[in-house]
Design a binder for these strands. Sequence first.
DNA 1: CGGGGCGCAGTTTTT
DNA 2: CTGCGCCCCG
Length: 797
Amino acid sequence: MSEDMKSRFRALRDRIIELQYRHLNDMQRKAVLTTQGPLLVLAGAGSGKTTVLVNRIAHLLKFGCAYGSDYVPRDLTPQDIASMEEYIARCQDSGAVIPLPERIFALLRYRVAFPGSILAITFTNKAAKEMKERIVQLVGEAAYDIWVSTFHSACVRILRREIDKIGYSRNFVIYDDSDQLTVVKDCIKELNLNEKYYDPKEIRNLISRLKDQMKGPREYVDEVRGQFREENIGRIYQLYEAKLKKNNALDFGDLINKTIELFRLRPDVLDYYQKKFQYILVDEYQDTNMAQYILIKMLSEFHGNVCAVGDDDQAIYGWRGADIRNILEFERDFPSAAVIKLEENYRSSQTILDAANSVIQNNRGRKPKRLWTQRKHGDKVRIYQAYDEHDEAEFICRQIKDLMQQEGRRAGEFAVLYRVNAQSRVLEEAMIKYGIPYRIYKGLRFYDRKEIKDIIAYLRVIVNPADDVSLKRIINVPKRGIGPATIEALEGAAAEMEESIFGVAIDLDKNGVLSGRAAASVKSFVDLIMRLIALKDTMGIVDFVHTVLEETGYRSELEREGTMDALARLENIKEFISAAREFEEANQGADLVDFLENIALVSDVDEVGEDESAVVLMTLHSAKGLEFPVVFMAGLEEGLFPLARAVDNPDELEEERRLCYVGLTRAKQRLYLSYARNRTLYGGSMLSMPSRFISEIPEELVEPAIGGYAFEFGDSGVKKGTSVDPIVSFNLPGKVTKEKTGPSPRFALGDKVLHQRFGVGTVVAMDGEGADLRIQIAFEQGGIKKFMANLAPLKKL
DNA sequence: CGGGGCGCAGTTTTT
DNA sequence: CTGCGCCCCG
């Protein structure tokens, strides 16, 4: 075969492969076709990164490493060249992707990937599921063997097979953060420390963060040597680790760290997985922590094909241990990495993107990016200055109603985003008042409910009787006469004998730890558990859950209670059972261990944003990854967003700004930003300045929303003379006219005043002067309220 | 052991 | 203003 023909073939091959991805933009296509070596895809918001990931995986399965390679099939004929040319011509004429003729397809493929050699990591199970579905659409059933999962699921999958090699039993249970908290509390108690000085939540979080950085108790203690309190925390951590180990339990951090430990201790195991995973893809790379980075680094060592996709501007989980340096330093960590930026946005109007670009530009230490779109500029960003949070909420509701009426929008097209969950209540009340269907998406997980945790604890004990934490939870639920003293005796004996509580309880006859009535109660509990253990493999999961509920008396107890609360719990249990049924149907042959694992790792019982008929209310964090035609961002006030505690910490402030960026880029068509001058939060009221993020948006991109109170942007949240200029300045015709924003009327103590909202009242206190005059008014109805005299809609009577 | 009262804290939460 | 955790009393 002539060199000429070879190079002709390569050129045609590459051209044909490119044509397969003509529906992608140039950068997306490049990301799909760059299969060899490390690759960082910086995917801006709405830039189609999932499309890239999915197509990339499909491409690996279909064409392997053909593109750009030297490979030329041996049996290539001049005829083939001709038909390749003809195919290209046909494609170009039709403008569509014509199915590849069999022969050409065969010529193009080179070292195609096995599904089992691809590992695709996502951050949520939902994302994993969606990705898998989309891959199935492209390549069919081959997709089932691809490892598309979260870090945690992938690690569990490995550990279930191999963890016995590092001294755990393979039926380990997974502790979620509330289990962690229980253990931490136990530790504090056991060490005779005071929960006042050793806040369990704080310590739980610290332990998690340490694990994210792969720091064990030893490393921590070394670090804090000489600091009394920290040393004690180190002791708590140490004990915590011992307890988990003893209970044969792993927490979320362990899932990653034990996998790393396994790989370090057993090079043969590492070798197997390194060779297995020829291609590794990591989505949301900006949210990875150090341990996860190390894991990826280890796994990719052999083949070196890591594709990290993410957006440093959307890194909003630093407080959860995510380390933004992972994405910023990818090129250093993976030398010779290619970097591709996806900046074309398919979601928002240019105006919205410009606003988002302007805000995020104020962050240092980011990868320069600028989102753009081929779409129209669209509407300006509307800003509403509300008198207070009620006014703000009502504005949002009025606006939603108007848009539904005038533009025929459905409720599902709107999202209201806020910084803290506490903001949702007022919004919710307004939604009710205006008769707008809404859904609040709260982080409250279904599985966190007491009754569900109880059932789960039963199931865990049945699977793993060494699980003291779960055992203690249910040993006396429902009441069966095993009080705190009894439990303490069992626990003490267990510690002494280096046994689990259940291990002690099962041997009461021999060890004589208890006697009399307590012993009898414990014995019957042990019998109950033994009976259930014997039954667990004789029936399906759903039947077994029913059996547990009957045998333990849990259900009858609730039925007996008969209160509203008990009924709600029974409802939740029903829901749990239907979740179990769903799981059973979707996973034929899965056992109880699998089910429990699913519970621990999968939180989203109900899907977000699937409901077309309701406005969705959620925090900015929860909104990540979603999009809505109309977005309201509420509470853009200094002190709330950015949060007060973030303003004097540059890193935290930047994270707040990224959060703002995430919020802005959720909007497809319309974007509203609002803030309240008077906000009551947590019982205390505060006077707030508009968020600096508002003033970071150029004036020409914004306009005041109708009906707001006049505002002048000299009062931007940032002091004059700092980097942010007070840029927006206009007055609105609206509820409040200029006279009311000018020099405040001279109020005196005892004056009767009329407030637009609260009606008639009497001035009872004054503080400050001029524009800063604060005034307290006792209303005839509604009590005493505080105002800024020159802002409040007040009239002297 | 359960309920009521008190005191206190109170970002964000993919696993 | 909530929600909870804890303590005390019946």
